[in-house]
């Protein structure tokens, strides 16, 4: 990766959340360097709320961003982003890379709800999201990928999402699309012309005792119990707006 960082921008943001002992959540670490800036905002619910502000547009080709959040025992944290992340073509031919690492301890609850990731025409991005949860941790995680801005061709995007609970991988899936992706990505088995694709992962220890039954949510979405105390909502839609609506509806079913 050294070759990449010579030409690209390196961005790094780190959040650590800790129960403050008074029923609230403190943020002993809230760092950002480069284009990623996490900001604490006023929380409307229990726990702390952080917005990640992208101070520059990007990631561009060759950039490398990492974003990590660690929740210690009993902490509650809601993370959002101020705007959609736009992957754009860079000066170099190299791919951009964006790695998100989430660690959630027992009794802690993380809501990871960033805005969409948009793969603009000509961009090339590899994004990984890896959540490591303790057996008693809770998680709501949403990812949305939009292939191209309105009216343009998609960029190249590979997105891998891994969720581990108590050391066991319960979800590992990678979606690869756009020009140069393995064949058939836009065909009837994979995306069939849909330009927005999203995942909502909800992990709750009580799902181990009372599993949620699989539900078909219309044409392009399904809610499925994973092989562990977690459910996944998988959805495809023509655009970002309709995708969000599908995921919001699914999320409401789980409350």
């Amino acid at each position: 990766m050294d070759g990449v960082t010579v030409t690209g921008v390196r961005g790094h943001a780190r959040i650590v959340a800790r129960a403050d002992g008074r029923g609230g959540t403190a943020l002993p670490v809230l760092d950002g360097e480069g284009p990623l800036a996490p900001r604490r905002t006023r929380s409307t619910g229990p726990g702390a709320k952080v917005m990640v502000v992208g101070a520059m547009s990007g990631p561009l080709g060759g950039d490398r961003f990492t974003l990590s959040a660690r929740l210690e025992e009993g902490a509650r944290l809601h993370v959002g982003s101020a705007a959609a992340t736009l992957a754009l073509p860079g000066q170099t031919k190299d791919a951009a890379r964006y790695d998100v690492r989430l660690d959630v301890a027992d009794g802690a609850e993380l809501h990871w709800l960033p805005e969409q990731l948009i793969a603009a025409e000509g961009s090339d991005l590899y994004v990984t999201t890896r959540a490591e949860l303790a057996a008693g941790a809770r998680l709501v995680l949403r990812e949305e990928q939009v292939l191209g801005r309105t009216g343009e061709q998609p960029g190249r995007l590979t997105s891998r999402l891994t969720v581990r609970i108590a050391g066991r991988t319960v979800l590992d899936q990678e979606l690869s699309c756009g020009p140069g992706a393995p064949g058939g990505w836009d065909g009837p088995a994979v995306l069939a012309g849909y330009r927005a694709v999203g995942q909502l992962v909800v992990v709750r220890p009580r799902f181990a005792r009372s599993p949620v039954p699989a539900q078909v949510l219309g044409e392009g979405a399904a809610l499925v119990p994973l092989a562990g105390p977690a459910v996944l909502v998988s959805a495809v839609a023509p655009d970002a707006l309709r995708l969000r609506r599908l995921l919001d509806e699914a999320s409401a079913r789980l409350d």
Binding site: R160, T169, Q173, L175, P188, A189, V216
Partner: peptide, 18 residues
């Protein structure tokens, strides 16, 4: 096993449930 590919097809998964 993390070294194994994890390539997924959203429509295959969604349509299988339907």
């Amino acid at each position: 096993t993390d070294a194994l590919p994890a390539a997924s097809a959203p429509l295959l998964e969604v349509m299988a449930e339907a």
